[in-house]
Simulated assay, not measured.
Amino acid sequence: MKEQRRARKIAMTQEEVDAFLSEQRTCRVATSSADGPHVTPLWFAWHGGALWLTSLARSQRWTDLMRDPRVAVVVDAGEEYGELRGVELRGRVEVVGEVPRTGEPVAELEGPEQAFADRYSGGTIGRDGRHAWLRLTPEKITSWDFRKIPRS
């Protein structure tokens, strides 16, 4: 993974990144389409050093990612300047499991599906036959935490 080169003084540690991604609920996923960038919000699970996304298999996002698996994802929080913090993850997504997901046993999905269900549906894993799983193992992570900026 590429190391963050800029703003290292306000970068999160790996433990802080893990905690942040485990507590936040929404990410913004940027893909490239023939018409230019396409950005959409999604729920996600951070599990095993990867960002797990569940996407409608019949969507512009899915079409974009099957054509070009490169993606940038931002998870951020804060309202006031001194509270802003976030993580940008870049890399390529991989499809994991059947498309769409109907429940075929896939060992790789046991952890992410349960983490997602615990976060969003009270622990019940739902499979609607319309969504499928994408795994982003980041090639680069950039983070920032403005709370680390010294106050005068």
Rank of each mutant, 00 (worst) to 15 (best):
G111M: 12
Q114H: 14
D76C: 00
L89P: 07
F20S: 07
P41W: 01
S32Q: 14
M1V: 15
W133C: 10
I10A: 11
T142F: 11
G126M: 12
F20P: 01
I149C: 12
E110R: 15
Q14D: 13
R28Q: 00
Q14F: 07
A30K: 09
R127V: 15
V95M: 06
V74C: 07
S55C: 05
P112M: 07
W52I: 00
V106S: 11
P37L: 04
K148C: 08
S32H: 14
D35E: 04
L21K: 11
H47R: 11
Q14I: 04
R6S: 08
F146L: 12
A11V: 02
F146Q: 15
W46A: 00
H38W: 11
T26K: 11
R67W: 00
A30C: 09
A11F: 02
V39C: 01
R61K: 14
R151Y: 07
M66C: 13
W62Y: 10
A72V: 12
E110F: 09
W144H: 03
K140H: 14
R85T: 09
G111P: 12
T54S: 13
V93Q: 13
V17H: 08
K148F: 06
S152H: 08
W144Y: 01
R8V: 13
L56S: 13
S59I: 06
H38I: 01
V73T: 13
L65A: 05
R67A: 12
E88M: 13
L136N: 06
P112Y: 07
P150H: 09
H131E: 03
K2Q: 12
G86Q: 08
T40D: 04
C27N: 05
G126F: 15
